[in-house]
Design a protein around this nucleic acid. Structure first.
Lengths: 220, 220
DNA sequence: AGAATAGTGTCTGTCAGACAGTATCGC
DNA sequence: GCGATACTGTCTGACAGACACTATTCT
């Protein structure tokens, strides 16, 4: 690209998280087009000023078109920029993360993308295209900070869940064990949780109470 | 502007803070050019892909060109976007804030800008151009969050300062009084402060110890 | 001595961590 | 009863808030 560049390339990238097998996972796509064809990357795409109402709208569109999935409230993390991060020229990418409930993890493959894969978000085990390795680390850090600050990652859980499931989810995000007693004591006061009155069934142990997110719960 | 828009307008805006008279202040400029000519706004400007190494570099350039000032480490807050925020079309602006030491507050006026003014950052007392009122609130919030999380706003202070000055600075940011004993107790452990061994002179009361930022201190 | 600001000591309540104990299910 | 998981109680140490106290300068 040797044209005189008046405008930067503007895109959004999305770190879509889920928790499975006690592990925080992120969705990676194998790129089907240049640049960085065949490399693993976070899903992303260029802004479409005609169609997008905002960067957040663009992030939702990317998830809808590439992964065929809808999420609540993508959260903006930061904007990465510079002349070197994309071979096509001066570019910037605004990074979002989003949380996918564990019972929605049937991400359907679509066109344009060769392959999808859920990978350990803390250690994807490969270099990602562009600056996406750095972006992923930022997104994980932002998510951890939120959870450390007592925000409950309820969007990662099914409609109804037990306190133990919630604890395991937080542990997967923070990558350390939490004390059950401390964890529950803090949740006593939480206005974000509603006791449904129902209990788990079918386990071969004492049933657990089922909770759901309060009507007013918002991530952010 | 009715041309079919392929690229969004990309700019940076900067909330430059200082603390003066026990008040957190932000630098506003009166715009000399359309759009929003004559309106008060945060200093900002369009990205120049030819010259800027990154968005942060663009923020530094804006401060240098418009205000003739250099600051340490502008901090990225968020990116605002949408078709409606600038009359010229689909636009996005990445917001930074920066801290100016109280002894550097001789911001020189330059061309392009009609007027500069330091204004109460918590209550600028006027509507700002574009979405800059919202941006300012975000920047203040981000700064407050940092200070609440124990980060010391040393870049707002002169080279050497007393603990009382530091406390007054934090109070101006958080807009509430802090307890002297508690404040100092926490600073005992801080690796960010170095006791210079010098004392204030010239006051008509007991001299105070002078501190400076540690070599390793970084904002962020 | 008195004003003014610098700096310290101490009591108390809150809360996190650690860990042990009790409860209730299936088998 | 036993294994397994759900849930609760309690001790302790760290720390924040509140507030009174001492220290050191100038006038």
């Amino acid at each position: 690209m040797s044209r005189k560049q008046l405008y930067p390339l503007v895109s959004v990238d999305v770190a879509l998280f889920c928790v499975e097998d006690g592990q925080l996972k992120v969705l990676l796509v194998r790129r089907a087009q240049d640049p960085a064809r065949h490399a693993w990357a976070l899903p992303g795409g260029l802004i479409q000023p005609e169609g997008d109402a905002s960067l957040e709208g663009a992030a939702l569109r990317v998830l809808r078109d590439k992964i065929d999935v809808h999420v609540e409230a993508p959260t903006q993390v930061a904007t990465f920029s510079g002349p070197g991060r994309d071979p096509r020229g001066w570019s910037m990418a605004t990074l979002f993360y989003a949380l996918l409930p564990r019972d929605h993890v049937q991400a359907v493959e679509k066109h344009k993308v060769e392959q999808l894969e859920w990978t350990d978000a803390h250690d994807p085990g490969r270099a990602l295209a562009f600056d996406h390795s750095e972006q992923l680390a930022s997104a994980v850090g932002a998510l951890q900070q939120r959870v450390s600050a007592r925000q409950l990652p309820l969007h990662l859980l099914p409609q109804e869940f037990t306190l133990t499931q919630l604890q395991r989810t937080c542990e997967a995000i923070l990558r350390r064990d939490l004390d059950k007693s401390v964890f529950r004591r803090r949740l006593m006061d939480s206005a974000d949780l509603v006791d449904t009155g129902r209990l788990t069934e079918g386990g071969r142990q004492r049933p657990a109470r089922l909770f759901s997110a309060a009507e007013e719960f918002r991530w952010g």
